[in-house]
């Protein structure tokens, strides 16, 4: 099975994240870049599927040069090779532009299964996997907490508000995963060393036959018109429980008219 796992480099959620004042895009220099957490679960699931069914796992990343760290991490976990979509023309692409760029690349490199995290910690739109399924015209198997492949049949459990749906489809397909699906492995020392020798192919907009008029900030379908840091929350009252903590909390709730 030819599995492509899409990973994204995002600013570390533990550091302060900002937008750039000049073009109102994410300030990638302000914070450390890390692998989007959910994408580690996607890589893990891809590796488990390969271990069970054979085949190959290719990492696909779109992002600046610096995103190569993210690729190395996924290769160190055990992926076989990588494609790095890197081009200044891609800077500032919105979800529509990004899905176009990734879909074109996926068509070019070929796949039986595409695996993604169900959302990124920076944009948090949660739409990319659905958009890829639409663009690639393949089944959308998103928000999976369980994936089973049997020949060309694939079944997932799709997490819903009330529990889950069991969804059936055939390959090729796009899957997105939630963090309940597995426990990502840590790269071993051997894995880290091996990753240095694994092939990483760099592709630009032209190489992947991406329509330059559909990507980049200037061609986005939406724009940020303004932004500001949210006003900090006023410091609250903290009391120590002296046997009356519950009663005091009730006083507070009453003062706010909740009771």
């Amino acid at each position: 099975m030819n599995i492509v796992v899409c990973v994204k480099q995002v600013p570390d959620t533990a550091t302060e994240r900002k937008l750039r004042s000049d073009d109102k895009t994410l300030d990638r220099d302000a914070a450390d870049g890390v692998v989007n957490e959910l994408d580690e679960y996607a890589v893990e699931e891809a590796l488990r599927l390969k271990e069970a069914h054979g085949g190959e796992v290719t990492v696909l990343t779109m992002g600046p040069d610096k995103a190569s760290d993210t690729i190395r991490k996924a290769l160190a976990m055990g992926a076989d090779k990588a494609v790095h979509l890197v081009d200044d023309a891609l800077h500032g692409s919105d979800a529509l532009g990004t899905s176009h760029a990734l879909a074109q690349t996926l068509k070019k490199i070929g796949f039986d299964l595409v695996v993604l995290g169900s959302e990124s910690t920076d944009a948090r739109t949660g739409v990319l996997a659905a958009m890829l399924a639409e663009r690639l015209n393949v089944p959308q198997l998103t928000f999976a907490n369980k994936v089973e492949v049997n020949g060309s049949a694939i079944t997932i459990q799709r997490v819903t508000d009330y529990g889950y749906d069991r969804v059936e489809a055939s390959l090729p397909a796009v899957v997105s995963v939630v963090e309940k699906i597995n426990e990502p492995r840590y790269p071993s020392f051997k894995g880290i060393m091996a990753a240095k020798k694994k092939p990483v192919e760099k592709l630009g907009v032209a190489d992947a036959e991406i329509d330059a008029a559909q990507v980049g900030l200037a061609n986005a379908w939406s724009e940020v018109t303004d932004f500001a840091a949210a006003p900090p929350r006023a410091a609250g009252t903290i009391v120590k429980d002296e046997g009356d903590g519950g009663a005091k909390a009730a006083d507070f709730l009453a003062s706010k008219k909740f009771i």
């Binding site: 609250g236 009252t237 903290i238 120590k240 903590g245 519950g246 009663a247 909390a249």
Partner: peptide, 14 residues
């Protein structure tokens, strides 16, 4: 906005 430092097994039932 309001915090209670204590054991929830005491505070919550109260």
């Amino acid at each position: 906005d309001y915090g209670v430092v204590g054991d929830l097994n005491q505070v919550v039932p109260q």
